[in-house]
Amino acid sequence: MSISLKRARAIFVKDYKEFTRNYAVSIMLIFPIILALLFRSVDPSVPGIFAVVLNLSFVILSCFTQACLIAEEKERNTLRSLMMTPATTMDVLFGKSSLVFVMSAVVLGIVTYILGYEPTSIWAFVAVIILSIILYTAVGTICGLFSKTVLEASLTILPVIFIFTGAPWGTLLVDDFPIFKVLEYLPSTQLVYFLEVRNTGFTMGDLFPPLLITLAWTVVLTIVSVVLYQRRLKDE
């Protein structure tokens, strides 16, 4: 499976122009920033605020925009037409994902700056953010593949919002519902754990488990999304 950077770049530029002119979707970019501005006035020492904003931003930015990009191409049959050009699956996915990645990274950078979060280990923090963006982009790809129109995409995203951003809250109910223990292994909960590791007296050992679990999610979901993408397009 080869990637042609030239073709991927063409898709990147095309999607960038399409996306920035589609105000209904691109307005979502400001949403995490507004959220961050709102929460800034809250006592910054409250743990978990940053994690909540991040988790929401991932779903809104990476997941939703990627789902919209793919669903819109499907809606207009341009994806099918694109498959008949020399552009391969990887070109298309790479071009689109890199656009979503860049946008997410920039907005999350701004959010982190506004909230004034100081990571315990800058490298581990960057790594976990990058992995999460890729992971949620893959989820977005899957959502996009299962929806035929942009409207459907915004609906299929709802369960994702519910499960992923709700998971950290669900873990609070573990005592009543032991089944909720599963939620601890969701990447969003792991992100909360990761961010809760405090500056004072942390060891690398505390940071590694969340990082590894997130990595596992990323790898699995990326593979699933690529395989599904090829399958779904053949079916149609």
């Binding site: 002119r21 589609n22 207009r76």
Partner: peptide
């Protein structure tokens, strides 16, 4: 039924 990228 081929569509096009409307915003380009």
């Amino acid at each position: 039924g081929q569509g096009e990228y409307m915003r380009l």
